[in-house]
Design a protein around this nucleic acid. Structure first.
Lengths: 200, 200, 200, 200
DNA sequence: AATGAATGAGGCTTCATTCAT
DNA sequence: GATGAATGAAGCCTCATTCAT
């Protein structure tokens, strides 16, 4: 007898709840200090249930890293058009989005930083992040090049500039405590823009 | 019987060896995955000796985070003069140093990133890093302000600019794998300089 | 509503399939390493169904041990006539049957060996085997005694001889790997016969 | 500082105590049902200490199976001379020893039976037992052949006869409960001898 | 000071059994 | 009757810390 629609829905929600709490705990306490028991408790789920939805702790971590990227951030981060008519507006709008996303991603970014910082320990999740970063940078390069051609940006090495831009986005997460970040969120658009060598 | 000078020296070296390997392992494998046994083995020292020189694992980590800062990086990072005559040259030289230091700090930075990323887990080491970051940014602000006054830099919010500059330094560590970083080390001076709004 | 004949049949077959795979797995992997999930999968049956047909794992094991005995081996092992006219032929035919059965019982014997070897762990199944062994030995004693009386066998302690004969049957299962056993199956009739002290 | 002789001795004894209890428990309760905690308790040792002396449960089992063989049984089982002057006496003395050993080995044999019965689960220990069995059978064949040449034994296939003899030794362990075995120990020499086809 | 054995708490994982659908 | 999700007890193993030598 297959599961009813209702049951499927309930399971989906349970899985979501577990993953959500796992992301939170992994981000705040790190991989090792986050125990399955803590995740289960935080998600209001029995200990064994975590293993119903995720093969083991490694897999839980993997999904905690990759699912938010695939379900939310990938699309949002790549939501800009390198061939837009009005490139200046497009670039400014892009920066606006990126800063907003990175501010919102606070918790998730702590996870990302762990994976990148210790990529030998987390090869599988790292691979996914690394591939996304390549995709992101390539698209960034395109809009930068087009911006330069259309006279909106000064000349610069587009590979370097794109990389610097991404590095900056990741880096600001590490300079401030949570409170401060939100206080200055608006302001960070300015240096981000500056990094792209705008024409004055 | 007091220890001879020779003995003191030998102990000093033993402690140094342990700390060195601890930094390496903490950086690469993280706090939890680094066991005392691994550190002892890597340092070529007996298991029990680690506890002779460091009270416990927490303390070992604390010293792994703080001693390199105090003994090497603090001075080097702050080695620039906000009141120099030729501010353009001073700023360029400062950027040169900072980039060089950050490239060399590779391993240590992985430690820093861990502490900042999970500062609730590591409150003591974080406090030290946070205080240094404040000191650093304050001195940065000063040179930026003076640069602006002397017409070397365009006008900008110096707090924001200094923070962006530090964020950028931290961030580039996260964008590249080790190989790539050293390949492009020279280039990163350019966007770092750009972040300070140089006058053209 | 009573179940139709067809349904009854289907259930009977399902039970049979489960038991069959359980015997195989218990024999090869032992009691603890055989999980209900493995049995269900091997039998092509849902996890829960195993519990529909067998109260719990203990019961499943019990039936795995006892049903083959009752349904196949008991009758075959006891299929000889201590009062036959031609006792020499009867004994030789009996040995032939026993060797053949023990070769065929390969898998099942692994189960038996487990139960006997750790009878404190499996008291219920052991009891059944023990009782059968008594029955078997008593009937063996009878044919041996009659063989001696009719001058076909030399004199010997019939209790000891019967026990030695059974021990031999069980033991040869343990001396050879599976391949070798089948290779020499014919030959084992000879020492088995010798154990009964044939008159020359 | 190396360990003192006294300490070494104490450790040796501790290891022995653990192994001794492990053999007992593995034999009686089987591999899975024997927990490290039980072994530790039975040996009067802390849980963690078991892991000081044995890498893991698998290794503990391996040593439980192989060490008694190497330290006691191998030599005793092979202690007969195929080239003795008086072969009849040598063979009878050999049988006497073998039966005595097998009676004494009671507990250990339960272990052996487990390993042979489920050799796919215990490949490493099985290999050791299998190799010993080959050595044993080869030496047995030699004494049987010499017995036949010197007219002490009737002609027979010496490979088959040697195998049957070993099978018998293993098998009698499975026919009786512990009490009964010791009661009839003397008697079992008779069928064992009979299996070698003595000349009358 | 140096060594490494002893300890046991705590984490991951497995799995028999229950039970709602 | 059939299914498989839910549960938590129990096992193996790791490892920080203690301490005797």
């Amino acid at each position: 007898m297959p599961l009813s629609h209702k049951q499927m829905k309930a399971m989906e929600q349970k899985r979501e709840k577990i993953l959500e709490q796992a992301i939170l705990l992994f981000a705040e306490q790190g991989y090792e200090s986050t125990t399955i028991a803590k995740v289960a408790k935080a998600a209001g789920v029995s200990f064994g249930s975590v293993f119903t939805y995720f093969e083991n702790k490694d897999q839980l971590f993997y999904h905690a890293v990759t699912e938010p990227l695939e379900k939310q951030y990938r699309e949002a981060m790549l939501d800009f058009n390198p061939n837009a008519e009005d490139l200046l507006t497009e670039i400014k709008s892009m920066i606006d989005k990126h800063i907003t996303i990175f501010i919102e991603m606070r918790t998730y970014l702590q996870l990302v930083v762990q994976v990148i910082g210790q990529h030998t320990k987390f090869p599988e999740p790292f691979k996914v992040l690394d591939e996304f970063s390549l995709t992101f940078i390539l698209k960034l390069q395109k809009i930068i090049r087009n911006g330069q051609k259309s006279g909106v940006l000064e000349e610069s090495d587009e590979d370097l500039t794109a990389t610097a831009y991404l590095g900056f986005l990741l880096g600001i997460r590490l300079t401030f405590t949570d409170y401060a970040v939100s206080r200055v969120r608006e302001k960070f658009k300015i240096p981000a823009f500056q990094l792209l060598y705008p024409k004055r």
